[in-house]
Nucleic acid binder design. Sequence first.
DNA 1: CTAGATGCAAACAGTTTGCGTCACT
DNA 2: AGTGACGCAAACTGTTTGCATCTAG
Lengths: 145, 145
Amino acid sequence: MKSEFNFRERCHEYGLAATHQRLVIYETVRSLHGHPSPEIIYAKVRKKLPSISLATVYKNLHTFIASGMLREVSLHRGSLRVESNQEPHHHLVCTRCRSITDLDEEGIDPVRLRHKLPPGFLVSRIAVDVLGVCPKCSGRSRNSF
Amino acid sequence: MKSEFNFRERCHEYGLAATHQRLVIYETVRSLHGHPSPEIIYAKVRKKLPSISLATVYKNLHTFIASGMLREVSLHRGSLRVESNQEPHHHLVCTRCRSITDLDEEGIDPVRLRHKLPPGFLVSRIAVDVLGVCPKCSGRSRNSF
DNA sequence: CTAGATGCAAACAGTTTGCGTCACT
DNA sequence: AGTGACGCAAACTGTTTGCATCTAG
């Protein structure tokens, strides 16, 4: 199986044990469409591995994300945050510590859309996140973006 | 107080009672810097209103966000989501139902940065969210973006 | 006066942790 | 053989809900 070979290779690259559970979790994510949650992934993985635990799914999703084998939809998950800055602005986000800094709008050219959006979708604004590693975090540790 | 006047006006505009708690919560958010969480806001509001409850803070933050008086940092909060689509892409996000659709990268001009970023910040990529109201949601109901 | 707002406590959902056992390398 | 992964259950965090009481309009 080609993708399994690729999987083992990438695990080796990051010093991860290529366990059966990991393989199934990884291939399940790739087989799902959209932006699946841990629960959804767990439900599908369970069909192949009925005794797997949800904790294992969580641990491995984090492992994959930290290694760069998978990406999360947004770094802004977690608790609710409100904007105290009421001016239009964008965000500079550290992929390691998740800190957020405001970037005023003029520093970024207005984003232009050349998309055929779904008919009837009413665009209200465009949010830009500049992702990377902040000065404080550019010491050691793994990737995560 | 000018800002209080403005507050009462905006509440009236949305049919919200201009309670003392609401005023303090609103002004507290405006007085904080960055991207405060409900707990942080609660802690500061409590100094003026020692008997306020955390539930009231939550309820009112939601009220303000739904009315457009405040904005949340990201629509992607909540549970962890992973990308099943491994190609570089952007997102089309509905501000009402929070559904996410992928937009392939070519439909959006590469974003150019003209910012003086904090020295030492290493940019890895730029994420664009096109926000608006999806066809399914453009029936009734309030704003929230 | 009355609809809607507050405060409290209990319930919830999603996620993490500690620990004994098991399996890659 | 040893380090790291697994599975389980319990703990936690952030958030929501139901309900009795209060208050702005």
